[in-house]
Design a protein around this nucleic acid. Structure first.
Lengths: 113, 113
DNA sequence: GTCTCATTTCCATATTTCTGAAAATGTGAT
DNA sequence: ATCACATTTTCAGAAATATGGAAATGAGAC
């Protein structure tokens, strides 16, 4: 992941409708959802939704696949994980990090749950 | 974490300078950095940097603390983690998730590394 | 108090983003 | 080929954001 891609991904998520859209797809899982169903669930006009879907798609955060007459969209989990990894890269300069429940490693996070 | 706060956080990160700034602070760890040092490291004019620092601060992603004449900024790791948790909430509707190296749990991620 | 240094606020300009209706495109059924 | 449906593109205006220089604020040193 490089800076430019990260900025694109973040600005794709930094919008009310697109954030709701992405979270909806995250929850929908591998099955994904057709554009129409998303528009209805979010109460956004088709043209507007298409604009937002395109934004997320261009950023690589959602995947698109045709199924008959509908376009199915799914969250791109690996892309999301890469983004998070980029944000927290070299956390704390490899220092303590155990004290903070914060920049803890995934394993530490898990145990404290 | 609620939608509005998440959008604020994401839009705070969705900008070249602010993303670099946040990553710099993530790497700096608990020690943080004074505004001046950040401006120099990033090569951004002071007024511009102040604008961006304010943006991140308002979003709650960085913490501010005075030390003598300087203002020290540190990354707010818990806020960052809350944001990620919000994004991936109810991932895959509690379904498989084991098959995807993607929305895998932290422990699974760790093992595959 | 005065002087300096670090940081922020003010300001105008330039750029980018969001919106929704109408028209265009693509896909499958008959 | 024609029809009906799903989605995207186009378009213009409105709103939000980024920029950097100059001036203002705040904090410590003398």
């Amino acid at each position: 992941m490089q800076t430019d891609a990260a900025v694109k991904s973040l600005s794709a998520l930094a919008q009310e409708h697109r954030l709701a859209l992405f979270r909806l797809l995250v929850q929908a899982g591998e099955a994904g959802m057709p554009a129409g169903a998303i528009a209805e669930a979010l109460g956004v006009p088709n043209s507007s939704l298409s604009f937002h879907l395109g934004h997320l798609h261009r950023a690589g955060l959602v995947l698109q696949e045709r199924q008959h007459r509908s376009l199915i969209y799914r969250a791109n989990y690996p892309a999301m994980n890469a983004l998070v990894a980029y944000l927290l890269e070299n956390c704390c300069a490899g220092a303590p990090c155990a004290e903070n429940a914060s920049c803890a490693t995934p394993e530490q996070e898990r145990k404290s749950a």
